[in-house]
Amino acid sequence: MHEINSKEWYSGVPLPEVLRYAGIREEAACGEELWQSAAEAVSEVGQAAAPKRIFRECRLQMPQEDVCEIDGMVWKSKSLAAHLRGCDRVLLFAATLGSGVDRLIARSSAVRMSRAVMMQAAAAALIESYCDGACTAQEEEYRRAGYYCKPRFSPGYGDFPLSCQTDLMTHLNAYKYTGITVSSGGQMVPMKSVSAVIGLTRDRQGGATGSCAGGKCADCPNVGCEFRRV
């Protein structure tokens, strides 16, 4: 379930973002080769990617301060509950760039780690950008119905346990629609995949920014993170 209208959907991925993910803290300080290398990595990863995503709208109840009940799934998490305050519905969401990207990075890792690092960074930027695009389109539909989308909140954020990953994927039937699987250790495969809960609220002030496409970092307690964008 996805639509990629433009063949080069990835061409708009910001290169400074890729450089940042590759551990380059001051883009201004890096030479032309690194910009070039980032651009090539975006293009190679983009061509290897077969992005797919799935949304599913569910009812939300919060029987206690720190408990979210989503379509019968009961998740105990203060940060998730705080994030979803004011919402009566949520969208469950999963997206992936597909296993071709994992393979591409594995291939580079075997012979040229410098390339692998750049591809890893490009893939991180691409999946973010793909998720943003998908969520923005989804939000437009909800706006018409009077809802605002909160930012994506993923297992592993705050005290939202990673162990919820399996439940979330099963509930979304994610393998069928996207090919995402969960390893026995609870990690998503393909590795460049994202899962999240998106709160739906009628209250415009309800979210940090009210938009799921921006301000992702605002709610994160890890204020010292070097990738923080607020």
């Binding site: 380059i24 300080a29 890096c30 690194l34 040229r112 410098s114 750049m118």
Partner: peptide, 14 residues
């Protein structure tokens, strides 16, 4: 010192 970045470090290593 932060004047060389990870991809450059790896390129030199290679």
């Amino acid at each position: 010192k932060g004047t060389v970045f990870l991809p450059q470090l790896l390129m030199s290593a290679e």
